[in-house]
Design a protein around this nucleic acid. Structure first.
Lengths: 124, 124
DNA sequence: CCAACGTATTGACACTCGTCGATGTCTGCG
DNA sequence: CGCAGACATCGACGAGTGTCAATACGTTGG
């Protein structure tokens, strides 16, 4: 937990995956049931304070990524709980992960946040 | 349920309340615990498909507002369930309501959506 | 004043979710 | 090989949530 940040600068950043928008802006066009369900699922990933803090830590990380071991202490939850929340963020496409030796590195996916931002965009 | 829309055009739109942002953008500055909890509470209001459809109906309403009686059938849930979701949206500041006779009119609050949008804004 | 209507509230139920301790899995090291 | 460390998964528990039928409340119209 001490030498991790040193290694980080020597490794490439995690590759960002493609992000597909699910719906038109809420204030623009009618929302179908399936679209509403999918959009609700994505917003649900943001509806927990621990997940927001994790996402915030990753999004503001100096190296663009952080070791899972360095995420446990800042949020003040147990290691299984943090692992659980990281899994939910990953399944929602909000973060990506990559195994490096015994550690796992996580990075935020800004395009995924931008996609949700678009859903809240005002009417043109 | 038939003459309601006719009356709507003859009445003023619901007044929009002031909206206060709770946090800096997720990707910009560190997020304190209290801020994370408040932001999570607001996103939780968007984490249900029925509420997203209600918000979508209100935000795209031709008159900028709709009678509660006209919101039940489109979402396909019981009247108490719709009333429950409208209450959650109202407590989250995403909609406002106003009683007109026996009916209650609801309108979306675009500024509240914009506030959440700001929280997802990219790093400058 | 009473009946009918629109909306909110209550109570109950099944289900999901956040949390943690215990355990499993995999990697690197001596 | 065997041990130690990092992370994920499992099992269990309490709290919260979405849903509806039944009911209460408030307003309008006859």
């Amino acid at each position: 937990m001490d030498g991790t940040t040193v290694i980080a600068r020597q490794l490439p950043l995690l590759t960002q995956p493609p992000v597909e928008a699910c719906c038109a802006p809420l204030q623009a066009a009618p929302l179908a049931d399936a679209e509403a369900t999918e959009l609700a699922r994505r917003f649900a990933a943001l509806s927990d304070p621990v997940r927001l803090r994790l996402l915030n830590l990753l999004a503001t990380a100096a190296d663009g990524a952080m070791c899972a071991c360095d995420l446990v202490e800042p949020v003040g939850k147990s290691q299984p709980t943090v692992s659980h929340h990281l899994k939910i963020l990953r399944e929602a496409g909000l973060v990506v992960s990559e195994k490096r030796g015994t550690n796992v590195w996580y990075a935020a996916v800004p395009a995924a946040l931008e996609s949700l931002r678009d859903a809240l965009a005002p009417h043109p």
